[in-house]
Every structure is written in C-alpha cells, then in structure tokens.
Computed example of a mutant assay.
Amino acid sequence: MNSEIVDRLRAAGCVFAEDEAALIVEAARDATVETMVEAMVEAMVERRVAGAPLEYVVGWASFCGLRIGVDPGVFVPRRRTEFLVAEALKATAPGAVVVDLGCGSGALGAAVAARREVSLYAADVEPAAVRCARRNVTPYGGTVYQGDWFDALPVELRGRIDVLLANVPYVPTDEIRLLPAEARLYEPHVTLDGGADGLANLRRVVAGAVDWLTPGGHVYVEMSDRQAPLAQDVMVAAGLGAEVVTDDDLGANVVHGIKPGAGRAAGTRAG
C-alpha cells in the first residue's frame, strides 16, 4: 500500500512523498481500528493529493520536538518560528508569566512551557484556534482566552507579563496572493494578513505591550528580512529597547523588545 501512496503523493508534487506516506499511515492507525485503516488512509491521501496541508491531514505539526495538534482553519506553526522560541527561552526564568498572544494552535506557549516551569496564558480571536490551543497548552497548566489581542486577557495580568510571545500576521495584504497554495487556500487570511505594510498587527501589539509587560519584560515577534528593521523602529518609538536577531539557516528574523526597568533574572540559554 505504501508504494502506491508514495507514487500518488509524488505525482501531486509532494517533495517528501515517502515521509508523508509514512506519517499518513501512522496517523490512520492511531485514529481508527485496524479493519478501517485502509479506508482512513485512502481518505487522507485524497485530501493531501487535493492540496490540503499535511498537518491538517494527519492532525498535528512537529514543532520544537513536540507534536502540536492542528485543526483545519488554524494557522500551521512553521519550523522557522522555532527560532523565536529559542530566543524567548533565553529570557524565561522559572516561574515567569508567559503569554502567547494571537496564539493559533498555542505552539509557542506549549514549546516554552515544555522547557520551563512557567505560568502560561494564551489568547486568540478565532474560536477554532482557541479550541485547538486548549488541547495543546492545558497539559502544561496553560489557560486560553478568546478575544482580540490584549482585550482577551484578564486585567490582573496588566503590568505582570514577563515574556510576551506574539507571532503576529505580517504578510502585506497585496502579497497574500503570492503565498504557496497550502497557506493561501487553506489557512484563514486573518492569520496571515498584516495590513498594507504587514505591520498593522505589530503596531497594536507593541502599543499594548508597553502597559502589559512588567518592568524588564520581553516581547518577541517574527518578521521578514524587509520588515524586521521597521518593526524594531516601531518598538523603539514606543519606548522599548529593541534588537533584531537572525538565524540564517532557518531564514528567520526575530525582533526582541525589552521594557525599561529591572525584571526577573533570565533563564538558562536555549539548547
């Protein structure tokens, strides 16, 4: 059965057809009784051949060594975003208050909480994302809220957040049409669209971070090569210290903002 699946996936343009076939068969066996595996595999292969993202087909994404549950209609965490987690861990001390804002599947918060003992909160405006994130962060003691950016959070967190993770949508509206079909056709545009210059969501998050971070608190966002220095300027204009850090291997840029003042001691370096 696997060789036929590989041939169909390869014909559909799947570069890693062998790996994808193995994951589909594994997912089918996990999801149903043995007598129904073949039918389940066929349904999953049909969805993948039609263009559905592999993560939606098998129900999870690999992220920072974790299996993050991902439902259709929820943003799929990208491998390059693992760099944001690695950078955030450098500033995350045990006991820190960590917020994954605009959390999608909750992958960022779960990845940090899997490596540090923290108080974890997450929020997203999309009901599908909130349901998905709850499955991923609850095992780490996290709580997920539904609402628009900081409006979703309990007021008692204002001024107490040590580490704010915000993988904001940053694709300029006119450039969404240039994205790969898996993102453009399957992921909600609200999870991709950053407004005319891609920085509209960033500006809102930075404006709120000034009030919601504790003195010495950190905010981390991901940006493109072109946008990263502009995002740094937005943070500086809001009164945050800011730097751009880059991982050339992953093609990732993280903009790191720090609220002035004395904060918690940093955690150990990621690794």
Score class of each variant (00 low, 15 high):
residue 167 N to I: 08
residue 174 D to W: 06
residue 85 V to R: 13
residue 259 K to W: 01
residue 87 E to N: 05
residue 65 G to E: 07
residue 204 R to A: 10
residue 179 L to C: 11
residue 249 D to C: 05
residue 141 G to Q: 09
residue 211 D to H: 00
residue 174 D to M: 14
residue 100 D to F: 03
residue 44 M to G: 10
residue 124 D to K: 04
residue 159 G to F: 14
residue 189 H to L: 03
residue 89 L to K: 13
residue 77 P to T: 13
residue 230 L to I: 07
residue 137 V to K: 04
residue 216 G to M: 10
residue 255 V to W: 02
residue 146 Q to W: 01
residue 87 E to A: 08
residue 99 V to Y: 02
residue 156 E to K: 07
residue 228 A to E: 09
residue 120 L to V: 10
residue 143 T to I: 05
residue 103 C to D: 02
residue 186 Y to P: 02
residue 43 A to G: 11
residue 64 C to A: 07
residue 131 R to V: 03
residue 269 R to S: 10
residue 32 T to A: 02
residue 83 F to Y: 15
residue 154 P to I: 00
residue 173 T to C: 04
residue 199 L to Y: 15
residue 247 D to P: 01
residue 270 A to N: 14
residue 102 G to M: 00
residue 247 D to S: 08
residue 35 T to K: 12
residue 111 A to H: 09
residue 214 T to A: 15
residue 147 G to L: 01
residue 56 Y to H: 14
residue 187 E to Y: 11
residue 11 A to R: 15
residue 91 A to P: 02
residue 144 V to T: 13
residue 61 A to S: 15
residue 257 G to R: 04
residue 168 V to A: 15
residue 66 L to F: 11
residue 187 E to D: 12
residue 254 V to P: 02
residue 13 G to Q: 08
residue 8 R to Q: 10
residue 184 R to S: 00
residue 171 V to Y: 11
residue 243 E to K: 14
residue 264 R to Y: 01
residue 223 M to V: 07
residue 86 A to M: 06
residue 250 L to E: 14
residue 183 A to K: 02
residue 13 G to L: 03
residue 61 A to L: 11
residue 30 D to R: 14
residue 101 L to N: 08
residue 188 P to Y: 12
residue 265 A to I: 12
residue 195 G to E: 11
residue 237 A to W: 10
residue 264 R to M: 11
residue 47 R to M: 13
residue 16 F to E: 15
residue 116 R to K: 05
residue 13 G to I: 06
residue 100 D to G: 03
residue 51 G to W: 13
residue 130 V to F: 03
residue 114 A to W: 02
residue 187 E to S: 05
residue 245 V to K: 07
residue 148 D to K: 02
residue 209 A to T: 04
residue 211 D to K: 00
residue 220 Y to D: 12
residue 188 P to T: 09
residue 188 P to K: 14
residue 43 A to V: 01
residue 81 T to Y: 08
residue 132 C to K: 10
residue 99 V to H: 07
residue 183 A to Y: 10
residue 83 F to C: 05
residue 132 C to I: 14
residue 248 D to V: 06
residue 246 T to I: 12
residue 59 G to Q: 12
residue 1 M to R: 15
residue 30 D to I: 01
